[in-house]
Design a binder for these strands. Structure first.
Lengths: 116, 116
DNA sequence: CATCTATAACCGTTTAAGCGGTTATAGACA
DNA sequence: TGTCTATAACCGCTTAAACGGTTATAGATG
């Protein structure tokens, strides 16, 4: 019960939910992508990603300066069930909007780098 | 996204999770049953039940002095999905233990009333 | 009406989350 | 080595949760 409550707590925040939705949609994203697309500070992005990682929902992978986050390999049975249910219920229009923003950002990033 | 996070928040607490598990298992329970079986204060039980009711997960029904709580009729699509997933993942042994305790309590209650 | 019971609502306190700003670290690169 | 970049870790502050104890309310019962 402890663990189940913990998993729900990890998803009980709009920012973390949006991060998970985007990562589920794209497989893997780096911190600056999420910071940009969700229009949040780097410190906020980092904090919430750490939370999701500590809960065991995400893994990270360093690649040079960037750190990429993806859904963890070793989800528990409980976690898998909850994440799957969450995935099915994400707000489609909102997620669509975020994905378009992400695409625009990725294009700009590939031209001009990670800065603005 | 707002609502989804709200639903997760409602389930992000061990007490509320246990309450929901018991109510799902039995259909309907009154406040004193939950107070007794979970060994919590009345004020705590009432507070968490109000939380679940305000989130739209539970309905209440007054019957004389007692108030019975059950899973709400009008769950949103999201809520139904999440509750169903949660139900599947409840800690079986723990829930079994609570149910045995509940049965013992209900027997005693029918004999001696709601008191101890 | 007076009293008793089950529950809700309130209150003051403690604990935990979340936040932005700042500093530290790890790796790239001149 | 010095500097730049992406990210993590830290800090002080603010807000929100949760708690137990107490009081209020609704309905039962004598």
């Amino acid at each position: 019960m402890r663990d189940l409550a913990q998993t729900f707590k990890a998803l009980a925040d709009e920012t973390r939910l949006a991060m998970l939705a985007l990562i589920l949609a794209r497989g893997e994203l780096c911190v600056c992508d999420l910071t940009e697309v969700l229009s949040i500070t780097q410190s906020k992005a980092s904090r919430h990603l750490r939370y999701l990682k500590n809960t065991g929902l995400l893994d990270d992978r360093r690649d040079g300066l960037w750190v990429h986050y993806r859904v963890a390999k070793g989800l528990t049975r409980e976690q898998r069930a909850i994440v799957t249910a969450a995935r099915r219920t994400f707000d489609r229009p909102r997620l669509g909007g975020l994905e378009r923003k992400l695409d625009a950002w990725l294009k700009r990033k590939s031209r001009e780098g990670c800065k603005p």
